[in-house]
């Protein structure tokens, strides 16, 4: 028991960004747009935050202010980039998987290209100090994630705005007929997912590492995407899924300190979240919890 408590801070550190991103992905799918660009959007946020922080730190800015501004910039960059997906999916009826894949590829290039221009290396320069833990050993990102979950639940299920947004993902035609602007709602949702993924990217880079490299995000966005379907598109479910995946990932780091687990290669724990997801998707197959119109373009007046 004490061991699990001891592990809690590092589990929370790993879970927080995955959870924040997954909530964004969930909001996006609730509105009827599938966003597989979460991975790329996290990368954009992480690179922006890391570059901003190291430059502001170098200029002698107050540490907390610099961290705050870096996170804000990562968030804004993610939001801006997600507009590409919004225009493609909402205005131009593009195939959402293709445009998401395009953004992932593009983010891969843009982040390192920017590092080459800014720092003349294939990574951002190392910053001296990232986020600090509080008295309990917990990073502020865990509290950010908590706020994001509660807010998303409140907005989606307690406000008319959220009900309208969900209607757009279930039956856009019906939503339009009662005067909801489907395209505008979907814009809000896509940008929300971009903003949250950008924020989460910043959280990753400022808590778990000291610079942005092409390996920083390393599949976290895809794990978040899986957490959305594993969590059955509900805030509570997604939180549970993110906790499970994050714990499995944390184990690969912690297993070294537990004699009984040291005999296994650490890769076994790396595999865990993915295998668990696959198994869960098979076990819970049959009943479909996904928003009915997720992934389908909406054309006014059609059908």
């Amino acid at each position: 028991m004490t061991m699990i408590l001891g592990m809690l801070p590092s589990i929370l550190m790993i879970v927080a960004p995955i959870l924040i991103t997954a909530i964004g992905g969930m909001i996006c799918e609730k509105s009827g747009v599938v966003n597989i660009a979460l991975e790329g959007l996290m990368a954009i946020g992480a690179c922006t935050a890391a570059a901003a922080h190291v430059l502001m730190e170098g200029s002698g800015m107050n540490h907390s202010l610099s961290l705050f501004l870096a996170l804000a910039m990562g968030l804004a960059a993610g939001g801006l980039f997600s507009l590409i997906h919004a225009v493609a999916a909402i205005n131009l009826n593009a195939d959402q998987t293709i445009s998401g894949t395009g953004i992932n590829l593009l983010a891969n290039g843009v982040t390192i290209f920017a590092s080459q221009i800014l720092f003349s290396a294939d990574r951002t320069r190392e910053f001296r100090m990232g986020m600090q833990t509080d008295a309990l050993g917990i990073y502020p990102t865990a509290y950010i994630a908590l706020v994001v979950v509660i807010l998303s639940w409140f907005i989606l299920y307690k406000l008319p705005f959220g009900m309208h947004l969900r209607a757009c993902g279930e039956h856009p035609g019906a939503a339009e007929s009662v005067g909801i602007n489907v395209k505008r709602m979907r814009y809000w949702a896509v940008v929300a997912s971009g903003v949250l993924a950008g924020l989460a990217g910043g959280c990753v880079v400022l808590t778990q590492t000291i610079q942005y490299t092409s390996n920083t995000i390393n599949g976290r966005g895809f794990i978040a995407l899986a957490a959305v379907s594993f969590g059955r598109w509900s805030p509570l479910g997604v939180t549970g899924a993110a906790l499970l995946f994050g714990t499995a990932q944390a184990f690969s780091i912690i297993a070294n300190n537990i004699p009984a687990l040291r005999v296994l290669p650490t890769e076994v724990f790396n595999i865990l979240p993915y295998v668990v997801t696959l198994a869960a998707l098979v076990l819970f197959s049959g009943k479909n919890y996904a928003p009915r119109s997720a992934g389908l373009p909406y054309e006014k007046g059609a059908s």
């Binding site: 590409i84 131009l92 593009a94 195939d95 445009s99 395009g102 590829l105 891969n108 843009v110």
Partner: peptide, 11 residues
């Protein structure tokens, strides 16, 4: 990446 995004935009 741009090429793939432009393909998505072909619609």
């Amino acid at each position: 990446g741009l090429i793939v995004i432009f393909i998505a935009l072909r619609s």
